[in-house]
Computed example of a mutant assay.
Amino acid sequence: MNTASTESGASAAGRRAPGRPRIPLERILTTALTILDEDGADALSLRMLAQRLGSSTATLYRHFENRADLVAQVVDRIIGEIEVDDEEPGATHWQPAVRAAAVSMFKVLSRHRNVAVLLTEQIPTGPNAAVYRERVLALLLAHGFPQSLAPRAYASLARYVLGFAMQLTADRAAKSRDEARTSAALHRIDATRFPATRALADFLPMPIEEEFAFGLDLLLAGLAQMRDQHAET
């Protein structure tokens, strides 16, 4: 047996290059969010992310079990951008506080217009989602919503925001052109057959932001009425 050869091989093995260095999670999530914003939800994959980072999918598996885990963490990072009032739940009126939380969520989803479809794939359960949910539920409970109504109110508000966010498109120029075409068509409509539509053509179609605000106020008013009805029984 050639001892020198064996020792040389062992020495070479000891000097073998280490694996790829670990990439900070924040950099990974920032890059993933860029892919999502620029290329859409379908483009967000571990392989594409590894290419953008100049790394390998094996490196990413140190942080994520699979694509679903990657999506969950990216979604939670986005939810972390939502502004949530940190005052004591009983120190502020629930309607303006809950409204502000819903509006902030809609604005965040407006900035990241490709994320709404991901929110339909799974219910967010990350730490930022937990903080947002806890704050809104605490507000509702602190202002007289019974336990049977508070979670339903929260779910309805969340799905309302998501429903409007799903109507947003990343191509804002195309959306503007479509609204202009719709408006022109409504102004040409036969006033004898559709008098109400023609009379209101100057107000249609309503900008989605205005629709959202109007509907949100109706939803909050309805929830307040339901809360009061529960209090009377």
Rank of each mutant, 00 (worst) to 15 (best):
E81K: 06
E81G: 06
E81I: 03
E81N: 07
E81P: 01
E83V: 08
V84A: 14
V84L: 13
V84R: 09
V84H: 04
V84T: 12
D85P: 04
D85M: 09
D86V: 09
D86K: 06
D86L: 09
E87M: 08
E87N: 12
E87V: 06
E87D: 11
E87A: 13
E88R: 09
P89F: 06
P89Y: 07
G90C: 07
G90P: 01
A91L: 09
A91M: 08
A91P: 05
T92Y: 01
T92N: 12
T92M: 10
T92P: 00
T92S: 12
H93R: 12
H93I: 00
H93V: 02
W94M: 07
W94V: 13
Q95I: 07
Q95H: 03
P96D: 07
P96G: 06
P96I: 03
P96E: 10
A97H: 05
A97C: 10
A97Q: 10
V98S: 12
V98F: 06
V98I: 10
R99T: 03
R99A: 09
R99N: 04
R99K: 11
A100G: 03
A100D: 08
A101F: 00
A101Q: 04
A101C: 05
V103F: 00
V103I: 05
V103P: 00
V103T: 02
S104Q: 05
S104N: 08
S104G: 09
S104T: 01
M105V: 00
M105Q: 13
F106R: 09
F106Y: 12
F106G: 01
F106C: 03
K107V: 04
K107I: 01
K107D: 13
K107P: 00
V108Y: 01
V108M: 03
V108T: 09
V108L: 02
V108K: 02
V108Q: 02
L109F: 10
L109Q: 09
L109Y: 06
L109V: 04
S110C: 11
S110L: 10
R111I: 06
R111V: 05
R111H: 11
R111C: 11
H112G: 08
H112M: 08
R113W: 02
N114H: 15
N114M: 08
N114R: 12
V115R: 00
V115C: 04
V115Y: 01
V115T: 06
A116G: 12
A116C: 11
A116P: 07
V117M: 14
V117S: 14
V117I: 14
L118D: 02
L118K: 00
L119E: 09
L119M: 15
L119A: 11
T120W: 05
T120L: 15
T120D: 10
T120E: 14
T120R: 15
E121D: 14
E121G: 12
E121A: 15
E121C: 11
Q122P: 03
Q122C: 09
I123E: 11
I123W: 05
I123D: 08
I123L: 13
I123P: 02
P124W: 06
P124V: 08
P124S: 07
T125N: 15
T125D: 15
T125E: 15
T125S: 14
G126F: 08
G126I: 14
G126P: 09
G126E: 13
P127E: 15
P127D: 15
N128Y: 12
N128R: 10
N128L: 07
A129I: 02
A129G: 04
A130L: 14
V131S: 14
Y132M: 15
Y132I: 13
Y132R: 15
R133G: 11
R133D: 12
R133S: 13
R133V: 11
E134L: 05
